Each structure stands twice: as structure tokens, then as C-alpha cells.
Amino acid sequence: MDGVDFRIIHELQADGRLSNQDLADRVQLSPSPCLRRVRRLEEAGLIRGYTAMVDQSAFGLPITVFVRIRLERHTGDAVRVFEEEVGRIEHIQDCYLMAGSSDYLLRIVIESLEAYEVLVRTRIHAIPGIASIESSFAFGSVKQTRTYPRPGKLLRSTGAS
């Protein structure tokens, strides 16, 4: 990837609905080479798809819960079952495998505290092998982005290696 590829990705992260002409103008390419680069980035798996950013509250899911999960055992079967079950729960938006005192960190969006209680009691507690569940509720969002920074930019700007 070169600087033009990074600019293409940056522009598409900011606005995935850009026409090829507008994208080409923003990255200072003619349309044909720009389209070839976008297709190459898609084929390489760097661009995995395009989506609409939806306002979570307006959509009816105003509550964000971060849930730390610790498993009783870390056998291959226990991990596989947990991860498969988590994949089936649509309110779980993200699931991260963690280092530290928790094994997993989940980000859940939900419509109410009552609905969260039902989700925990009926879906999450039903997953075998969970030792502990710890929930933290977000009061608000200070920053939320899906635009990645350019790798290495911070190190280059500070002179660190």
C-alpha cells in the first residue's frame, strides 16, 4: 500500500457513498486508476464492505453495555461453545478476546435496562462455562469512529522508532 491507497481508504471510511469521480478528485487521481485501486483493495481484503452508519438511539437501542466475561475453564470445547453462542446473540455487537482478568469483552446495544436483564438471564447465563459476568453501562459517548489512523503515523511524527 502506498500513500494514495491510504488516502482512498481514509476517504471511503469517512464517506462510503462517494462516487468514483468524487473519490478520484479527492485523492488526485483520474477515475480509471482510482477504480482499479479500489477494486484491488477490495480483492486484497483491505476493504471488506460498505455499510450505513445508523444512529443507535434513534434506531431504538439507546443503551450501550460493556460486559466482561470470565470462563470457568479454557478448554478448546468451552471456548468454542462460548464463541459460537455469542455469535448467535444479535444484541452483542462486538466480542473481543482479552488478556488480563477477563477472558472476553462484549459490547452490547439494547433498548432498556429491563431488556438487558432479560438478555442476561435468558441468553448469556444459558451459555455453559461462564464463571463471572460484570457489566458496565455507558452514560454517553465521547468519541466514536470507524476511521482508522494511518499505521506508523504517530511514531513518525514523534521521531520514536
Results as ranks from 00 to 15, higher is better:
residue 77 D to I: 12
residue 79 V to S: 10
residue 79 V to A: 10
residue 80 R to S: 15
residue 80 R to V: 03
residue 80 R to P: 08
residue 80 R to H: 13
residue 81 V to W: 07
residue 81 V to H: 04
residue 81 V to L: 05
residue 81 V to D: 10
residue 82 F to S: 05
residue 82 F to M: 01
residue 83 E to V: 00
residue 83 E to Q: 03
residue 84 E to N: 10
residue 84 E to I: 05
residue 85 E to N: 09
residue 85 E to G: 00
residue 86 V to C: 05
residue 87 G to F: 02
residue 87 G to Y: 00
residue 87 G to A: 02
residue 87 G to I: 06
residue 88 R to D: 12
residue 89 I to Y: 08
residue 89 I to S: 04
residue 90 E to P: 03
residue 92 I to S: 03
residue 92 I to F: 10
residue 93 Q to L: 11
residue 94 D to S: 11
residue 94 D to N: 13
residue 94 D to V: 15
residue 95 C to M: 11
residue 95 C to A: 15
residue 95 C to Q: 00
residue 96 Y to Q: 09
residue 96 Y to L: 12
residue 97 L to E: 06
residue 97 L to V: 15
residue 98 M to G: 07
residue 98 M to R: 01
residue 100 G to N: 13
residue 100 G to P: 11
residue 101 S to H: 06
residue 101 S to N: 07
residue 102 S to R: 11
residue 103 D to M: 11
residue 103 D to E: 09
residue 103 D to Y: 12
residue 104 Y to F: 13
residue 105 L to S: 07
residue 105 L to G: 03
residue 106 L to E: 03
residue 106 L to S: 01
residue 108 I to C: 00
residue 110 I to S: 09
residue 110 I to A: 08
residue 110 I to K: 12
residue 110 I to M: 13
residue 111 E to G: 13
residue 112 S to E: 03
residue 112 S to H: 07
residue 112 S to N: 06
residue 112 S to V: 04
residue 113 L to E: 14
residue 113 L to D: 14
residue 114 E to W: 02
residue 115 A to H: 11
residue 116 Y to M: 12
residue 116 Y to I: 06
residue 117 E to P: 00
residue 117 E to V: 14
residue 118 V to F: 04
residue 118 V to I: 13
residue 118 V to R: 14
residue 119 L to M: 06
residue 119 L to R: 04
residue 119 L to S: 00
residue 119 L to V: 03
residue 120 V to P: 02
residue 121 R to P: 01
residue 121 R to A: 13
residue 122 T to Y: 08
residue 123 R to A: 01
residue 123 R to I: 01
residue 123 R to K: 15
residue 124 I to Q: 06
residue 124 I to D: 03
residue 125 H to D: 05
residue 125 H to I: 00
residue 125 H to R: 15
residue 125 H to Q: 11
residue 125 H to T: 05
residue 126 A to R: 11
residue 127 I to G: 04
residue 127 I to P: 07
residue 127 I to Y: 06
residue 128 P to R: 14
residue 129 G to Y: 06
residue 129 G to V: 04
residue 129 G to R: 05
residue 129 G to C: 08
residue 129 G to H: 00
residue 130 I to T: 10
residue 130 I to L: 12
residue 130 I to V: 14
residue 130 I to M: 08
residue 131 A to V: 02
residue 131 A to C: 03
residue 132 S to H: 07
residue 132 S to R: 13
residue 132 S to E: 15
residue 133 I to V: 15
residue 134 E to K: 08
residue 134 E to L: 09
residue 134 E to G: 02
residue 135 S to N: 07
residue 135 S to W: 10
residue 136 S to K: 13
residue 136 S to I: 09
residue 137 F to D: 01
residue 138 A to G: 01
residue 138 A to D: 02
residue 138 A to T: 01
residue 138 A to V: 06
residue 138 A to R: 03
residue 140 G to F: 00
residue 140 G to W: 01
residue 141 S to H: 10
residue 142 V to Q: 07
residue 142 V to N: 09
residue 142 V to R: 12
residue 143 K to H: 06
residue 144 Q to M: 01
residue 144 Q to S: 12
residue 145 T to N: 05
residue 145 T to C: 01
residue 147 T to D: 06
